[in-house]
């Protein structure tokens, strides 16, 4: 299904489509797991989350949504904008939508779709804490060419 979307250019019609949003209660342990995984011993991260922490919120479900839309894909890039710190006890809502779709012919991978997802993170007071644009590159694995 995802491959058909890529072929027909139908992905383009999905620009602006809102994906499922998620609500996440921030616990100290979540931040500690993140900090330990990055191996970032900065003592500041005892009381506030590192700026990039929010990118992991709901990533696995977001990844499933991308899989459904795009099939095989690579991670192309991340653009992150930070507005307010996130602290334990906050409740963060992540709203995701498809912001852009571009198609391009690649040398190695054949026809590719660059799909940019825009994710907005707000806290329990409705304040914008961060924005993120994630670009995924969809391709058709069977048409992978050598060299």
């Amino acid at each position: 299904m995802a491959e058909d979307l890529l072929v027909s250019g139908e992905l383009k019609s999905k620009i602006g489509v809102e994906l499922i949003s998620g609500e996440y209660e921030i616990e100290k342990g979540m931040i500690q797991r993140f900090v330990q995984a990055v191996d970032d011993p900065n003592p500041l991260w005892q009381d506030i989350a590192p700026p990039l922490f929010v990118v992991v919120l709901g990533f696995s479900e977001f990844d499933k949504q991308m899989a459904k839309l795009m099939g095989a894909r690579l991670h192309g890039g991340t653009e992150f904008e930070y507005f307010k710190p996130v602290r334990p006890g906050d409740v963060i809502t992540a709203s995701r939508k498809i912001a852009d779709v571009r198609e391009r012919e690649g040398k190695k991978l054949g026809k590719m779709a660059f799909v940019t997802f825009e994710i907005t993170y707000k806290n329990q007071n409705g304040e914008l804490v961060a924005k993120c644009r994630q670009t995924a590159i969809g391709y058709k694995p069977h048409e992978e060419k050598n060299g």
Partner: peptide, 20 residues
């Protein structure tokens, strides 16, 4: 991100970061 937050210290604020 860690490169930046280590550098800017407690009072510095990371406003934007992009990676390709």
């Amino acid at each position: 991100g860690q490169l930046i937050t280590d550098w800017i210290g407690e009072e510095g604020v990371l406003k934007k970061l992009s990676c390709s």
